[in-house]
Design a protein around this nucleic acid. Sequence first.
DNA 1: ATTAATGCAAACACTTTGCAACTAT
DNA 2: ATAGTTGCAAAGTGTTTGCATTAAT
Lengths: 324, 324
Amino acid sequence: MAQRKWKAELELFHSYLRRNGLKKTYQKDLILETFLSSEGHFSVDDIYALVRRRDKKVGAVTVFRTLKSLTACGIAREVLLGDGVTRFEHNYRHPVHHHIVCTECHRTIEYVCPTLDRIQEDVIRKYNFQPEFHRFQTFGVCQDCREQRTVTRSPLQDAERVFARDSLRMILRLQTRRMEFLRDLAARNPDPEGKAVFEAGVRDDGNHAAELRRKLEEIAAGEKHLEDAPPFLHFNAEELEALIPDRPGPERGGEVRMDATSAGELVRGLHRAAAGFFGEFAAKFSDTEGEQILLGFAGREAAQAGMAEGAAESVGAGPRKPAA
Amino acid sequence: MAQRKWKAELELFHSYLRRNGLKKTYQKDLILETFLSSEGHFSVDDIYALVRRRDKKVGAVTVFRTLKSLTACGIAREVLLGDGVTRFEHNYRHPVHHHIVCTECHRTIEYVCPTLDRIQEDVIRKYNFQPEFHRFQTFGVCQDCREQRTVTRSPLQDAERVFARDSLRMILRLQTRRMEFLRDLAARNPDPEGKAVFEAGVRDDGNHAAELRRKLEEIAAGEKHLEDAPPFLHFNAEELEALIPDRPGPERGGEVRMDATSAGELVRGLHRAAAGFFGEFAAKFSDTEGEQILLGFAGREAAQAGMAEGAAESVGAGPRKPAA
DNA sequence: ATTAATGCAAACACTTTGCAACTAT
DNA sequence: ATAGTTGCAAAGTGTTTGCATTAAT
């Protein structure tokens, strides 16, 4: 039943085994499947216990060794929370994240924050240090424990889905802001052709926003209460805001005459900025559903900016060739 | 010979023992002194080896137990770098910091970055989580190892002194910028009394800057090559820049007429901003030499802004009472 | 028929505790 | 005299290895 769902992971594991002259065994596959079907942070013993529920004959050492292999081939990742136990979490198509750990109930929250990472990278660079991996962990007491609530919340949402949700929300936020901006420009533009360009922009963003909302519902359909899941992706609202320029024109609220050409140029500029930002932003989350969403949006924006295919990532250097 | 230097720590330890009905022994003091005289991250075995050089009869378990006590009373802090060994570092008058660890030579760089911490705190707050401590560690390869250099650099500078140095440098940077700003205003002010106010501000900052430079030399005198030591404190240059307003007046470079009253108000505003910023900034580094320096500056700025004593910390809420 | 995998037990590397002799208060 | 301390040995952790047996290629 599971083979369908984790086809990619199984293939990755098997190809790793083949590449290293190792043998594909029933135990290894069983352990891989057990690992994949458990969301969260699990010790060797945790997985061992789960595996034993399916087959009593499998040994703990095999679980240990298989988890090491899974780590080596990129399916798993080791998590050290400082309690002397090595735990494993999903790594394949799962963005690198930070941890918040409750010292009372041991519930663990995962999050990503590109702004945080960027500042950290800036510091690292000052020491001419080549970073390989990092460990950002915050320990404390969660709200439930502080309020003596014994709520055993659902173990952990599927981070991948929550990430997809947050990516979509982030894009929607930009589009909403941009629509406001364009709507305002359209209203203030006495030039009918220029006005039409802005209105087209509003319509276009509106259509796409509707599409994204559909996608959001689609994702939420798979997991109940996804809407209520705490955020996983933390983006900097100001950076997003910076993609929308300040209102042009001498006075806010007054008329701003723009002909079709300059209006078109302005709209393309907006798309170009978004394409650059989202392209770069997505790069941090390679091989995840969230990256697909962010990159997809960046590509769409690049196209609307009249940029060449694949130019989203190289916005800093300008488009490589004129649009086809 | 050592008793003089670590008087405060010894006292703290002894009062901790007294408070908890524990006994002061020769071994405990020996271990404490050994710990204090070694700068860096040390395992129980490391300290044990050092203690044995002074007295062969002390046992490893006593070292282990004493280090636990030192941690409990705030003299030491446990550091877990994920290699299964618990190490100890100085905690007393030593700011909480992050680690950068070279996976090749195991050299460890320490740094503080209030901007990084603030963003992290912002994220934590979104989860209604009460943080207690955190672990920010970056692993990778240092420049020396990448370039195959086998330079065994000096084990570790005294972070406390480097922190003091960086605090002074940060203040000097603000003062230098502010002097430029005031000098420019003075030059552009046709009003003689207003000009005099700005010039007084320049002189004052110049005098204080000279004083800080003397202090910097004084600190550097204790430790050779302190000037070359890598930074410990990373501050956000933009935040510092924001303490100096944009040039007033209709056009840059043109004349800006300000009488003594408004010039004085402007200068006081600069001091007020600096007092607020440095007061808040210092709060993160309680009980360190760096905090003293930063707080001292904040207090001085508050006085010059005509603020009440102790108002530096409560700038957001405005001065509590008029200047005496 | 190779060659690696398995799973048991046993070794490891630390950390932590039990306990009889000792020592500070 | 009365705790707490010391330092030995010994017990716990969780992780990792050795090895005869078993299974995949």
